[in-house]
């Protein structure tokens, strides 16, 4: 088990290193720089500022400097918000992003699994059709369409919830969390439904029925694990989807998270901030993938022995 974790962490570190290197060079090679858009500054001033950020050095030296900083967990100051370090900016935005992401994952898994199980147990019943409809809507209507529409209806028209921002406590959370979890509710409920139907056809479930232990116990003790394994395997990709979605959600609902910073930073060539957020997202994704693998190994004895 420990060997498995170490191996996965090592692989994750390699992936992260590749990601960071790629991001670094892609950013530098992309046309334009952090200060090239600023027409008010004279070329001398720009040269001056670039020198303080070491942007005048050759690329490999900049990379070395970046790696050295990374090893000391210091990503340096943002080039756009010059008074803040990347660490500060991330630290100030992260709680918002994490709160929304956390609730979106919770809502998506509980609602998704519940809908999927209900649909599988009563195929072609009312719940099944309702879940199917939610599934199709969640998959086919993108966040950036349903988000603004819900904003228009529930915030502007009905005034049930705030339009955006983070000033109304939990009420500010409602729309963003619903919109962010919707696509994942859709995927998870479909996945759960097919997985459960497949599991109920397994020979070992037939054995359990033959033992006469009752329908409930058969489902609870003998079908649930088999049903949930593929769903748990999907939680890694689901996290990635939530990261993607949170960038949109924070833009749509004007939330002060880090997702919103990322697009700004990329468009303004804020190299240090882009690197910082990339590192954070990449790291989160890798940790989540490892965590889901561990949970699967914990649930499935067949996965425990081979690394």
């Amino acid at each position: 088990m420990i060997r498995f974790v170490v191996k996965r962490l090592w692989n994750g570190a390699l992936t992260l290193a590749a990601l960071v290197t790629l991001t670094f060079f892609v950013m530098r090679l992309a046309p334009g720089g952090p200060f090239s858009k600023n027409r008010k500054l004279s070329p001398e001033v720009i040269a001056n500022i670039e020198a303080t950020y070491h942007l005048d050095e050759p690329l490999w030296m900049q990379f070395g400097r970046f790696v050295w900083g990374l090893l000391r967990l210091d990503l340096g100051p943002s080039t756009r918000f010059r008074d803040y370090s990347v660490g500060d900016i991330i630290a100030s935005g992260l709680p918002y992003s994490l709160t929304i992401g956390f609730w979106a994952v919770i809502v998506a898994t509980t609602v998704g699994i519940a809908l999927g199980v209900a649909g599988a147990l009563r195929r072609n019943g009312f719940t099944d059709y309702a879940a199917g409809t939610i599934g199709v809507i969640g998959i086919a209507i993108p966040i950036f369409v349903i988000g603004p529409v819900m904003q228009a209806v529930f915030a502007l028209k009905l005034s049930w919830v705030p339009v955006g921002g983070w000033n109304d406590g939990w009420r500010s959370l409602i729309l963003p969390v619903i919109v962010l979890s919707l696509p994942n509710i859709a995927y998870i409920s479909r996945l759960t439904r097919t997985s459960m139907i497949e599991t109920m056809r397994e020979n070992y479930v037939r054995t359990a029925r033959a033992k006469g232990i009752g329908e409930w116990r058969t489902i609870w003790r003998h079908t649930l694990k088999g049903t949930l394994l593929p769903v748990i395997a999907y939680l890694g990709p689901a996290t990635a989807a939530i990261i993607t979605g949170s960038i949109l959600i924070e833009t749509i609902f004007a939330l002060p998270g880090i997702g919103r910073h990322f697009v700004d930073a990329a468009l303004n060539r804020d190299y240090p901030l882009v690197m910082g957020i990339t590192l954070l997202y990449g790291g989160l994704l890798i940790l989540f993938n490892i965590a889901t693998d561990l949970v699967r190994a914990w649930l499935d004895p067949r996965l425990r022995h081979d690394g």
């Binding site: 994750g12 990601l19 790629l22 892609v26 950013m27 090679l29 992309a30 960038i247 990339t278 990449g282």
Partner: peptide
């Protein structure tokens, strides 16, 4: 293992 958004945003920036 890469976050999809980051990759796609960076690449489209790189290609101008």
């Amino acid at each position: 293992g890469f976050p999809y958004v980051i990759l796609v945003i960076l690449l489209s920036l790189l290609l101008g």
